[in-house]
């Protein structure tokens, strides 16, 4: 058995157009290294030069966001399903400034309530 990996449209140029590929590894980091040996360049689109998971992608193991599973250290088992999606984000303001404000708000424990209707 292997680990099934779902590839988003924007990265299918690395997989010869394939939507689903297979790989193996004990952690997400190992899996991405294994995939890169057959799909050269794919890892570089997901992992920064500093060795962290890129801000522009979401990676899920089964139904969990890997950011809550240890990111690149997330443990994998045969039969797991990994899904890669482009993170959808943006906005009028520079990202660094927005992130700083978000962190500040979190630190202060402030949350804007959702208004319905």
């Amino acid at each position: 058995m292997a680990i099934e990996v779902r590839i988003p449209t924007i990265l299918r140029s690395y997989t010869g157009g394939a939507k689903v590929v297979e790989g193996s590894g004990d952690t997400l980091n190992d899996l991405l290294t294994d995939l890169d040996s057959r799909h050269a360049g794919l890892r570089g689109r997901l992992v920064t030069e500093a060795g962290a998971l890129h801000r522009f992608v979401n990676v899920y193991v089964n139904d969990e966001d890997v950011r809550f599973l240890g990111a690149l250290d997330a443990k994998l088992s045969d039969g797991d399903s990994v899904t890669i999606l482009p993170a959808v984000a943006g906005g009028a303001f520079g990202f660094a400034a927005a992130a700083a404000i978000a962190q500040h708000n979190t630190a202060a424990g402030r949350r804007t309530p959702v208004t319905v209707g």
Partner: peptide
């Protein structure tokens, strides 16, 4: 945020 948006990653999945 008034200046940033981001899909919730679980809702997006």
């Amino acid at each position: 945020s008034m200046t940033f948006y981001e899909f919730d990653s679980m809702e997006q999945l």
